[in-house]
Every structure is written in structure tokens, then in C-alpha cells.
Amino acid sequence: MKQVKIGYFAIYREITGCRQQQLQTAAESPEDLFTELMTIYPGLQRYRQAMVAVNEEMADWGTALADGDEVLFFPPIAGG
């Protein structure tokens, strides 16, 4: 198990009711982690088209997660 810090934005923040949380998880990748989060927050299942950042850099869904990593889930962006 590892401890990760998770950040939520926009619609994800509204669904989870928080901006960030610490989670003990066995997830090996952001993909595993998002799957786990969908069981905790079923509302996320409708909004799967996310991008992910690990430790403040955009990352692939298969990136290996380590203890202490910060994982940010971004719903579709709409700047400008």
C-alpha cells in the first residue's frame, strides 16, 4: 500500500465534495486509482474523459505511482 495525495477540479471537485484528499491505495497507476475512486464516488463514472498530472507534470494513465505522489485529475478543459 502507498499513500497518495489526490487533487480534484471543477466537476470532479463538485462530485467528490473536496479539493484534495489523502488516500491509502494499492493502485499501481493513475488508471487503477481512478477506477478505485469511481467505486468511492460513483458520480465520477459519468465523467471519465480526464487528463492526469503526477507531481505537477502531465502524465500517462499508465505511469507508475510511488508512495507520496501527488495525482491531479483534470476534467475536460475550457480556457479562453
Binding site: F9, A10, I11, Y47, A53, F74, P75, P76, I77, A78, G79, G80
Partner: peptide, 20 residues
């Protein structure tokens, strides 16, 4: 590319995140 999200507030009282 920028991590920016836009929520629109409509005249009919609803609101929604654009692109979501």
C-alpha cells in the same frame, strides 16, 4: 493546453461546466 475550467451560469437558472 492550460488546466482551466469554465462554468456557465444560464438565464434559466441552470449552470454547467463547459465541455463536460
Amino acid at each position: 493546453r492550460l488546466p482551466i475550467w469554465k462554468k456557465e451560469y444560464y438565464a434559466d437558472g441552470e449552470a454547467g461546466w463547459v465541455n463536460c
